[in-house]
């Protein structure tokens, strides 16, 4: 308990001081995670909407697979990406291993199923509302998907946040493909893992608190935006 309070104090100190090293680590965490979430949304939103709104053979199987992929262990994703990007792997020539790009790729793979599966649920629910009107107007599949994504946009912000939550807290995949190289691929979670294995438990926990604060700030910003956007469109 004493060491927990000590960690809180240390976390406050870290946030106050914000030295350049910590800022670099926070910045890289945000850069990797936000890029991965953006990429995952780019793929997962349309994918989820298609599965949620359109009828096609294999649709329920697709939904099942998306849901199952949400449970992908980060370490497995990390290994898959490592094998792809390794010098002996099929994409080795790109030289991406141990770079932030590799971490972004791994997190995108990790987050896309979450975004897609949750989007499918949100869109499917909205589509049950809209289905008859769409059928009556004979809205084409493409236009349906676009309209549903647009109308569900506020709920989909929460979906993106869920993806952000998973990505920002993830360590198993990024430590394998990033290598936790100081000043290059060291992010919040890998730093926490490192400090833990150095036995600096209080400091590691303090970093955890800082990570939590970052997640709070990002969530708060998005939810504030969502609330004001909601006032505009739904009143």
């Amino acid at each position: 308990m004493g060491s927990f309070m000590g960690s809180l104090g240390e976390a406050a100190g870290l946030i106050m001081a914000l030295d350049a090293d910590l800022l670099e680590i926070i910045g890289l965490s945000l850069r990797v995670t936000l890029t991965a979430v953006a990429a995952a949304c780019l793929i997962g939103l349309p994918l989820g909407a298609v599965v949620g709104a359109l009828r096609f053979p294999g649709r329920s199987l697709a939904g099942l697979v998306l849901n199952a992929l949400m449970g992908l262990p980060p370490v497995v994703v990390g290994l898959m990406v490592y094998m792809m990007l390794s010098a002996t792997g099929p994409l080795g020539v790109l030289g991406l291993l141990y770079t932030p790009t590799a971490m972004i790729i791994a997190q995108t793979i990790l987050v896309t199923p979450i975004v897609a599966a949750l989007t499918r649920q949100v869109v499917e629910d909205l589509h049950t509302d809209y289905a008859e009107q769409f059928a009556s107007l004979e809205v084409r599949p493409f236009d349906r998907v676009v309209a549903l994504l647009w109308d569900a946009r506020l709920s989909l912000l929460t979906v993106a946040l869920a993806g952000f939550g998973r990505a920002v807290a993830e360590v198993g995949a990024v430590i394998i493909v990033g290598g936790n190289i100081n000043h290059v691929t060291r992010v919040m979670t890998t730093t926490i893992a490192l400090e833990t294995s150095k036995g600096n438990l209080e400091f590691a926990l303090a970093l955890g608190v800082v990570l939590l604060v970052i997640a709070l700030v990002v969530n708060g910003a998005v939810m504030t935006f969502r609330a004001s956007a909601a006032r505009m469109t739904y009143a």
Binding site: L23, G27, L30, V184
Partner: peptide, 13 residues
């Protein structure tokens, strides 16, 4: 510094 790190302008790259 934070912005530089977020946008990937940091020294190593």
């Amino acid at each position: 510094v934070l912005a530089a790190a977020v946008f990937g302008l940091s020294a190593p790259t």
